[in-house]
Design a binder for these strands. Sequence first.
DNA 1: ACAAAGATCCGT
DNA 2: CGGATCTTTGTA
Length: 173
Amino acid sequence: MGLQGMKIKKDFFRSNTLLVAKNLLGKYLCRRLPNGEIIRERITETEAYKGFDDKASHASRGRTKRTEVMFAPAGTIYVYLIYGMHHCLNIVTEKKDYPAAVLIRGVEGANGPGRVCKYFNINRDLNGKQLGKELWIENPRIRMVGKIQASRRIGVDYAGESKDKLWRFIMIK
DNA sequence: ACAAAGATCCGT
DNA sequence: CGGATCTTTGTA
């Protein structure tokens, strides 16, 4: 019995956000579309948003109606609308009441967080739900041995001393 | 109540 | 490089 089809469990997301962001690379983002069809693509790019002091994180100014979901238990889905047009998909990490999440910035065939959500038909209806039936992560059948490149996060130049953290991870083939 | 800015993308 | 487009947040 191979690993394909094995959904990743919540424990995977409960650990350190940087580890989760790196370890998500090469795994499959899986979606059951409204018409029942299932689509899968390998995750190629992620970003970590972690802690109370991360000025780039939406949660850096505490709990609000919008950021409350970042304080939820690991494995919760955080989707928000950006620039009035594009959706961004995050998976909440670490323990409850600690604000952290991983932004899915790219999969094979869709580069950029907005394009990922468009490709997977993801919108705010999934916000606050758990990974499971509609959206989940699977292990790849064959383990990837690619390299991981760390770099600065995109679009967070406003974030003071947090802007230069190397919390963006890209899988190099 | 209002204004400003945003974890982006597309076309020029 | 600017425009689209609307929600969230801070400020009054």
